[in-house]
Design a binder for these strands. Structure first.
Lengths: 140, 140
DNA sequence: GTTATTGCAAACATTTTGCACCAGC
DNA sequence: GCTGGTGCAAAATGTTTGCAATAAC
């Protein structure tokens, strides 16, 4: 948390009670809360905080590399009729999704602690990166 | 497509032009369209179709196992302050998300065709399954 | 004092629902 | 004819934006 404050100072970001509370809520939660979850939790200490502030702060924290969205895709659902196991390349810039599949990822070694308690139905690898087009645009 | 029709008949699902068009649009698209994309594409042939029908049909197709959502998480964004590489166990029943990490998944062998054209920034494995609690409830 | 942040309200986008009409079986 | 599907409109949900008041620096 001291490191967080130092980082904010260094980057010219105000250190506000709201910002600290939001970051603290995320740090001390193991349940991948939604913006709404965080909002409800924080409201006890900060009764006037607004959901919009939570969203804005989460965006800032993500830009600064402190947190990440667990749903890296754009919010809108995307559908797929490809029924074979395959993985996704997701362009972080233009949101394009490309399939790939490879024998090398057919039988991932999931640890015993996972297979012991969960019943596994399926898995996919989500690779984040820049597609060929967006690499060009980044250089421009 | 013939197999699709046969499956619908066997399951007591009506074979409607709209349903066929939606499934066809998905089959012949490699770009993981959204509901809106499908809607716009189909409207040329079916000018009276509604977006609600597209959504309802997509849900049916998913239940029947013909398609899947590329965003398997619930629509709301979930956040994470864990900065180390880790993977997600997602319960398909209660939406819980649990982290796990293992040395075995630290350096996944991505194929040359991927690393050759995309600039890879990160990846995570998304495992879908039933958590311990929901396994119990399923049996009940 | 200046700049960034907050909190409100309103807008926006996506998805779901209720219901009357219609089509498939 | 019965059942399930469609299409419309309205509601619900999640997220973003504009802006004036306020707090951090």
């Amino acid at each position: 948390m001291a490191q967080f404050i130092a980082h904010c100072r260094a980057r010219g970001l105000s250190v506000t009670p709201q910002r600290l509370a939001i970051y603290h809520a995320l740090l001390t939660s193991s349940q991948h809360p939604s913006a709404e979850d965080i909002y409800r939790r924080i409201r006890r200490q900060h009764p006037t905080i607004s959901l919009a502030t939570v969203y804005k702060t989460l965006e800032t924290l993500e830009q600064e590399g402190f947190i990440s969205k667990v749903t890296p895709l754009h919010v809108t659902a995307r559908y797929d009729a490809n029924r074979a196991r395959h993985h996704h390349l997701i362009c972080v810039r233009c949101q394009a999704i490309e399939d790939f599949s490879t024998e090398a990822l057919e039988h991932l070694p999931l640890p015993q602690e996972v297979t012991g308690s969960w019943r596994i139905l399926d898995y996919t690898v989500q690779v984040l990166g820049l597609c060929r087009e967006c690499q060009k645009k980044e250089r421009a």
